[in-house]
Nucleic acid binder design. Structure first.
Length: 229
DNA sequence: TCATTAACTTCAG
DNA sequence: CTGAAGTTAATGA
């Protein structure tokens, strides 16, 4: 996955016909859209954190993704899919979004092949990622799920990390992230406490260290070779 | 092995 | 200062 530099392509008013006023602001827990929003739009996050959730019949929420600056959501509208029971909710105050109507999106895609390609890549990638996540939740234990979650992050930041490996000594690999332990717990279907415990266990084993902004992988090889059930 | 509860400490805004 | 995040331990499925 290359840089998700969609933000550069889309939002900074490079898009003709867009004015300053196309930003939307949300507060924490605001619903950005839900099943009944007829106005289907694609959103690009320019500030804050957003979760895409779905509610089961019992009413508990299943978190499908947690997204942040530069990332895109609402892409189901593009596929014409009735991804109906899906909601997007702001997780932070002062969440800032760029909405794009589906029509505008199509227009852009028609006019600009490069843009169109980027979008398909992102959507494809997202879908695959979600599938993998679901599979994991069904068959693996919490520890494995966390390991694979981190592997996904590694994969996503591959280019940046490889460059880092070349430039720096072998003391560690830095994965940047924006997840709290609670977020991670939600995404891998476990509890905050368990995530804490696992991170501490990894730390004790000298494999990696978690902090709010990054995860440092100390022993990549050892980590990658960890139990894959 | 892990979720749950619950009490506690630390952190960020 | 306050609420959120993170930690730790006990308990039980």
């Amino acid at each position: 996955m290359d840089n998700i530099n969609l933000y550069d392509i889309l939002c900074p008013h490079k898009v003709k016909g867009y004015t300053e006023k196309h930003f939307i602001h949300h507060h924490k827990n605001d619903i950005i859209y839900n099943q009944s929003s007829s106005q289907k739009k694609i959103y690009l996050i320019s500030k804050g954190k957003v979760k895409v959730v779905k509610f089961s019949d019992e009413g508990n929420e299943i978190i499908k993704a947690i997204l942040t600056k530069g990332e895109l959501f609402g892409e189901k509208a593009l596929l014409g899919e009735g991804g109906s029971d899906e909601q997007a909710i702001a997780m932070t105050d002062n969440t800032q979004l760029c909405p794009l109507s589906v029509d505008k999106m199509y227009e852009l895609m028609r006019e600009n092949g490069r843009f169109s390609l980027e979008i398909s890549k992102i959507i494809g990638f997202r879908l695959r990622k979600m599938e993998r996540r679901l599979e994991r939740l069904l068959f693996k234990d919490a520890k494995t799920r966390l390991i694979e979650f981190i592997r996904d992050l590694l994969e996503e930041q591959k280019e940046r990390i490889e460059q880092q490996e070349r430039e720096q000594s072998i003391t560690g690999i830095e994965i940047k992230h924006f997840y709290t332990q609670g977020d991670i717990a939600n995404l891998i279907g476990t509890t905050r406490e368990t995530v804490t415990k696992l991170f501490n266990q990894f730390k004790k084993d000298g494999l990696l260290e978690y902090s709010r902004k990054n995860i440092i992988i100390k022993k990549k090889e050892a980590f990658l070779n960890l139990s894959s059930v």
